[in-house]
Design a protein around this nucleic acid. Structure first.
Lengths: 351, 351
DNA sequence: TGGGCACGCGTAAGCGCTTACATCCCAATG
DNA sequence: CATTGGGATGTAAGCGCTTACGCGTGCCCA
């Protein structure tokens, strides 16, 4: 613990011990240039004996690169961000890049952001609308390669497909005979939400219907619960609820059930993201599965390409997959009463 | 995008523009020492005009500190790690520290780890047993302050209480009249798991019973499913299953239900972590809630204290809370058949 | 046998900051 | 009026590494 050597070995110590110059040590350690294998071994030995570890800061300063990328997220609640992060980190590591993380849920972001920007070679940003002024972003882009996540307004954004899936999902509910649909989620809160509502509206337009206005609620369970209670108190409740994400959907579903509503019969409920919980509600939650991890991975590799190659990162849109379970009204191979045996896995029809 | 200036402003440019020396610029920018307010304003102006941003690497090199801490995790699956990360990042940010993240699920960790260690002032490590050789850790500790997470063998570990809660949970099942209990989880896979099994065993010992050997399965849903199928095929199945975490528990619960087993009547099931899904199974999953976010927060602040103060980080053990729902056999205010209205929130008795 | 050419390695010039120390100037003091 | 002290600023020495450049070998080929 406390036998931490006051001054860890430097490249000079290694060079001296190996009887070579620091340049040679440097060459050996990063594998550039040719070094006679005998010399290399001596250097490697010396480094090992001294437990040498090059200071990242010194390397970064001299080489003018950090070998690190940053990821800025608007919070880390829910499985969505965790998965995104996994994909990002994995891909970054494969490219030999460290990952610096910044969550800026509520905090004033200016100072931490600058700190982050000063220590990475590229940055992936996912931010809520209004969280980051366009000026800030422009200024960021002047410093380093930038990739935007799920920002429909940005040219080089990378995100999952929303509008078409939302339309298809909505049409699926129409197919179940549902006509009084509502979109539960605030389009103002995220570009993704806006696109999903657009798809919801498009499906209505396709049938000559007028979509109900979006229900402006947040992304958390509490938001879903709250709205469910409001629905329960209404004289003419909707017969279908297209939720902006699964958190809202499962909470809403749960609360409606507690209010005596039979999901899939009285009302159809759908979510978005296909989180773990969607598989465990009764009925299972029909949802839209996004390749979130892939999204993170793509962000990291895009950054790596830009950093390495210098090309501008292109936009990308990833495909989604509608996962049908019981909450939309589809039959489900599940024990409604668990006393009667019903073997076999959940039926998950994918389009 | 591509109007990225080839050479961003340095401290020299700012100094020149402000008509002062770089020392003064440095002093102004980090608020040390006294600088005449007129001078300060000139410097600040110049910096703003040039959009100056100090290179992190140069600062780190000169100041011999990175102002960053690292977090090493064995994967990021499930809500557990995400929450831990949130706590860690939040606290680190409050201390003015950047966060570098390293996930080392399967990868050979040597190289990325070294890269990480070279760029932070302190490191919090959570690793599976055997993932990190004791030598590695000792060597790490020689480089920088280290905090271990959920590593019962380490002196300065910080983790949540396990044994007592497991014992209490097990005794709760005894109270339901259960006698053929099994612990589903591999004590070899994590110190936490070992401690939980120890508590499970202690409860048995308290009643003069001999605990069944632990069922060595992993932490994932698939592990729970697999074991459930095995249980279903047995002549004399257990009447209580204490699972190492909620992922395993919910999957097992689901699979048993599909096999016709009535949870809470035929068998009691409990989990650990109190993840979101635990609230949505039917019956709800009885689980143990850990202050995971607090754990992350504690790790970060501990590191900060060590870095700043030089004191060795002390161990810490955080309290847990047993959350009773229906899966253990307790009555639950839930609609078994959702056609009959049953208002009111889930009853969650906490000890 | 000599010129050229790789190859292997050392020399030294930075990279952009922090900070100990020196310096300057002016107000306060005897 | 000379002296002194201290606040404001400049000077310069690093921090530990990368890398352009160049020198000295030994070897091949003419």
């Amino acid at each position: 613990m406390s036998d931490r050597t006051p001054r860890p070995a430097t490249i000079y110590a290694v060079a001296e011990r190996a009887g070579v110059s620091i340049a040679t040590v440097s060459r050996v350690l990063q594998g550039t240039n040719h070094v006679a294998s005998a010399t290399r071994d001596r250097v490697l030995d010396a480094a090992r004996q001294l437990d040498y570890l090059p200071r990242g800061s010194a390397r970064a300063l001299a080489a003018k690169k950090h070998e690190a990328v940053g990821l800025m997220l608007p919070g880390l609640s829910g499985p969505y961000f965790a998965d995104l992060l996994v994909g990002f980190e994995t891909a970054a590591a494969e490219c030999g890049l460290s990952v610096a993380l910044l969550m800026t849920d509520e905090r004033g972001l200016s100072s931490p952001l600058r700190q982050l920007v000063a220590r990475v070679d590229g940055l992936a940003v996912m931010a809520r609308p209004g969280q980051l002024a366009p000026d800030d972003l422009a200024s960021l882009g002047r410093w380093l390669p930038l990739v935007r996540l799920a920002a429909s307004d940005h040219p080089a954004t990378i995100h999952a497909e929303n509008t078409a899936s939302a339309r298809e999902l909505t049409e699926h509910l129409f197919g179940h005979g549902r006509r009084r649909l509502e979109f539960v989620g605030d389009p103002e809160l995220a570009p993704d939400a806006a696109e999903r509502y657009a798809g919801f509206a498009a499906a209505h337009a396709g049938l000559g219907l007028v979509p109900a206005p979006a229900v402006p609620v947040g992304f958390a369970e509490a938001d879903g619960r709250r709205y469910a209670r409001q629905v329960l108190s209404r004289a003419e409740p909707p017969d279908g609820l297209v939720c902006v994400n699964d958190e809202v959907a499962v909470a809403l579903l749960d609360e409606l059930q507690r209010g005596g509503v039979v999901i899939g019969r009285d009302v159809a409920v759908t979510g978005w993201d296909d989180i773990m919980t969607a598989r465990y509600t009764r009925p299972g939650l029909t949802s839209v599965s996004q390749p979130v991890r892939e999204l993170g991975r793509l962000a990291a590799t895009a950054l790596h390409d830009v950093i390495a190659g210098g090309s501008t990162p292109g936009p990308a849109v990833l495909p989604t997959r509608i996962v049908i379970r019981g909450s939309c009204g589809c039959p489900e191979a599940l024990p409604p009463d668990a006393t009667e045996p019903q073997p076999g896995p959940t039926k998950e029809e994918t389009k």
